[in-house]
């Protein structure tokens, strides 16, 4: 375990520093957008004392802008920030815990885009094609992208899942699901 934790110590500050800067800027940007929108929140018919509909939105978006800036600043200084668990557990255990909780393995972006695409597609075909067909398609595609070799298993799983869940929900649990083009 020692080599991995040494690796963790060397890599973590640089990677988290840059991503923190980006994240911080994004948060600041979103906060600013929300702040500007909040300024447009209308006045109530009967104003309440001390607090109005825009009070919390303004406060929260302001805080977002501030925290985004702080995060950006911390990211630029490249200091890895440890949480309370480091105080409670001591450095060695806290690192082990960090490893457990926040896997260091980066997500490969090409498969990620594919799966995001499948996810969005699933949402779009859900109603028009109906639950069974859209779910079978989604599951079949998703699993095949990862493990094309076991296509028989994939197909069986996709179809069985879609059919069983459809009937379980519509007949047993009385939840209406779209039948789409099969209905």
């Amino acid at each position: 375990m020692t080599p991995v934790s040494q690796q963790t110590e060397q890599e973590a500050p640089a990677r988290s520093g840059r991503s923190d800067v980006i994240a911080g800027l994004l948060v600041t940007g979103v906060g600013a957008l929300l702040l500007v929108t909040a300024l447009g929140i209308g006045e109530p018919v009967r104003p309440a004392p001390g607090i109005g509909p825009a009070t919390l939105p303004l406060f929260l978006s302001g805080m977002l802008v501030l925290s985004g800036l702080v995060l950006t600043g911390l990211g630029l200084r490249r200091r890895p920030v440890a949480g309370f668990e480091a105080d409670l557990l001591g450095a060695g255990d806290a690192e082990a815990l960090e490893e457990l909780l926040h896997e260091e393995q980066p997500v490969p972006w090409r498969p990620l885009l594919v799966h995001i695409g499948l996810f969005v597609g699933y949402a779009l075909i859900f109603i028009p094609l109906g639950y069974m067909l859209s779910t079978a398609l989604y599951l079949g595609a998703t699993v095949s992208v990862i493990d094309r070799a076991r296509w028989k298993r994939n197909l069986t799983f996709a179809v069985l899942f879609a059919v069983i869940v459809y009937f379980a929900f519509t007949e047993l649990l009385m939840v209406q699901l779209p039948a789409g083009i099969l209905g």
Binding site: A23, V70, L74, V81, G83, E85, L97, E98
Partner: peptide, 8 residues
């Protein structure tokens, strides 16, 4: 008292 970065 959260794990990880407080700012986050």
């Amino acid at each position: 008292l959260m794990t990880g970065s407080r700012v986050k």
